[in-house]
């Protein structure tokens, strides 16, 4: 499909959701206090950084396999927060990447995070490494790095495919504390089985809001939750009312 079909509900739905998220951001900017529930996996990030510091060993942050897309952008944002914590303890983060565009982005974000954390000299640009654009060459490169550097903590955030379990099991065998988060539904069970903490689904996109507690980010998370309630209600209502709705409404709903 080249362009949106305005004869169906979908374009209206998307813009309604965007408007609701925008409303959340506006309310938060206006000073509305918003609550976000506890995410134990994200609370564990500081513990993981602290543990790696105590052991005097580096951490590894893998931002997934994808190129420039929303989950990877989110992963780089999370990496920035982890780097700020690491800078506080002057700890080292190794970040292998599979895409050269992400390499430049990651280098810039981590450089600024270390500077903001008060330890610009603790940042080593060589710790941001481009390994390979090939899935399994990348996986073997990451596994090799983990073993050679004896990492104490692993963070897997981003879009992953079959290599997820190879990475997580290697970290598990090394005894590293592991925190993962992915919107890739097929990889979630692997991470749950092999990692200490896992954030799943929508939690993945709430991590930066949770970490920074910035009102504007919390507002967008609140907006997303309202959208989910709206979508679930719409699905339930249309399922129940399907038999009674006239054909043109069913066509509009795509049923």
């Amino acid at each position: 499909m080249e362009h949106a079909d305005w004869g169906t509900i979908y374009p209206y739905l998307v813009w309604t959701l965007v408007a609701i998220i925008g409303l959340g951001i506006a309310l938060a900017s206006a000073g509305k206090r918003l609550h976000i529930r506890r995410l134990p996996a994200i609370d564990a990030i500081e513990e993981a950084v602290g543990r790696a510091t105590e052991m005097g060993r580096p951490m590894m942050f893998v931002p997934g396999l994808a190129g420039v897309d929303v989950p990877t952008f989110q992963a780089i944002a999370i990496a920035g927060h982890v780097a700020r914590l690491a800078a506080r303890y002057r700890s080292r983060i190794i970040m292998p990447v599979t895409d050269t565009v992400i390499l430049t982005m990651a280098e810039q974000v981590l450089r600024e995070a270390y500077a903001e954390g008060g330890a610009p000299d603790a940042f080593n640009p060589e710790d941001i490494r481009f390994l390979s654009g090939d899935q399994f060459a990348f996986a073997s490169g990451v596994v090799g790095l983990m073993n050679r550097e004896r990492v104490a903590a692993n963070f897997f955030f981003g879009s992953f495919a079959a290599e997820s379990l190879i990475l997580a099991e290697t970290g598990q065998a090394l005894g590293a504390i592991q925190i993962a988060g992915t919107p890739s539904t097929l990889q979630i069970p692997f991470f749950i089985a092999a990692c200490d903490f896992t954030v799943i689904g929508e939690e993945y996109y709430a991590v930066t809001a949770y970490l920074t507690r910035e009102p504007i980010l919390l507002g967008s998370v609140w907006g997303q939750d309202v959208c989910r309630i709206l979508l679930a209600s719409l699905i339930f209502a249309t399922t129940v009312a399907q038999k009674f709705l006239p054909p043109f409404v069913l066509k509009f709903l795509g049923l």
Partner: peptide, 20 residues
């Protein structure tokens, strides 16, 4: 996750994510 992605895309578009 899809709704979360929409929200994250909006935050990136409006440069609300501090890391960017």
């Amino acid at each position: 996750a899809a709704v979360g992605g929409l929200g994250a895309a909006l935050r990136i578009l409006l440069s609300l994510e501090r890391s960017f």
